[in-house]
Amino acid sequence: MRSIQVRTASHSYPVHIGAGIFAKLPDVLAETGLSPSKILLVTDTEVERLHGEKIKAVLDTAAPWCQYTAESGEQAKSFESFFNVQSYALKEKLDRKSLILAAGGGVVGDLAGFCAATYMRGIPFIQIPTTLLAHDSAVGGKTAINHPEGKNMIGAFYQPEAVLFDTDFLETLPQKELRSGLSEVIKHALIKDEEMLYSLLDNVSSPEEISPDMLEELIEKGISIKAAIVSEDEKEQGIRSFLNFGHTLGHALEKIAGYGFYTHGDAVACGMAFALWLSERTLAKQLGAKKIVSWFKRMGYPVTIPENFASGDLLDAMEKDKKAESGSIHMILLSGIGSPVKHPFKRRELEKLLNEWRLEGQL
């Protein structure tokens, strides 16, 4: 088992990583001083199908519990789902000593975390990530639901009491979901760990080649990078924005395509391909972008935008993103591998550059 302590201004908590550690939930509750009057398990239909019996067996040893199961997919991060979870919690008479347990991928974690942040003005919750992608979203306290105008627009910064990352859950992941999660690992390497990035480039040519031991090490490195940033900037007033590398265009792609068309990781990978090109084009820095993006392509990530997605529509979405400030679109760029910077662009300038990149990618 690997353990990391996340320390923020508002709260500190452990992240435990390893095979079979979900069974230690009762011990973690005791270690963190939690004795919940009731546990509300929030999960989705796919996690229930694959892991429901295992999760329930552990809960039976922990506390009285009840379960809300959302539909799988990005559509669960909606006002309707948020209302339904809150209504179910009230029906089950959860109180301020109750606990919400988020067992699922990033969608479940964001939804359940936001419900925990707002139920009776805030009750404890624990993250149980079941996807590789959720190694990123489960840590740091960002919780949210989507709005038709943009992804994650309604939410709160609210830290969990603990994160239990049981790597046994990853054994059932489809390859496209493993690839999606690996995208956030690659992001962490690009913004903070050059050695980690080139180890991936030199040794991995497809997600299938990653061994369980290597995967656990990558998860630990990725979470450690994020934990260090979050500990310094919990509410994204400064360096935490570096974690948005690739996300400004990535979120726009998800919105324009319709949530669920792209996996989050695939959309972010395309956003990172643009951000790497834009870094070299704008900052006049040599990052080896062509080599990195060629590797993205071999790994199966999209590195171009479909022709029927209008650049103007993408810019509309980027302007409405949380990362837009004072009439400018702020992109996270790299002045070197491991050296992120925030760079503002006016809409007309960025649209011109986006069109230039799209033209180059189609040659």
Rank of each mutant, 00 (worst) to 15 (best):
A76M: 14
K93E: 14
A103Q: 09
Y88A: 10
E92W: 12
P64W: 09
L41M: 14
K93A: 13
A89F: 15
N84L: 15
V85I: 11
D95V: 04
A63D: 04
E48V: 01
S72G: 01
T69A: 12
F79S: 10
V47N: 03
A63R: 09
D95M: 08
A89N: 11
N84I: 01
Q75S: 15
L41W: 06
D44Q: 06
I39W: 12
Y68V: 02
L34V: 00
E74P: 04
L99G: 02
P36M: 06
E53R: 05
A102Q: 08
I39S: 10
T61D: 13
K38Q: 15
A57D: 11
Y88Q: 04
C66Y: 02
V58P: 09
K56F: 09
D60W: 01
L50G: 00
A103M: 11
I55K: 08
F83Y: 15
N84R: 13
A63Q: 08
S37N: 04
S98C: 03
A70N: 01
E92Q: 15
E46L: 07
Q67D: 03
K77T: 01
S37G: 05
I55W: 08
S81N: 13
L59Y: 07
E48K: 14
I100R: 05
L40A: 14
S98W: 12
K77H: 12
S35L: 04
T43C: 13
L94W: 06
L40I: 04
E74A: 09
D60R: 11
Q67N: 07
Q75E: 12
L34E: 01
R49A: 15
V58R: 05
E53L: 09
Q75L: 12
Q86K: 10
G73M: 12
E74L: 12
L59Q: 08
E46G: 00
R96Q: 02
E80Q: 13
F82G: 03
L90E: 12
L94F: 13
H51T: 08
K54M: 11
L94D: 05
D44F: 02
S37P: 03
G52V: 09
K54F: 15
G104Y: 01
S87I: 02
E53Y: 06
A76Y: 02
T45G: 01
V47E: 02
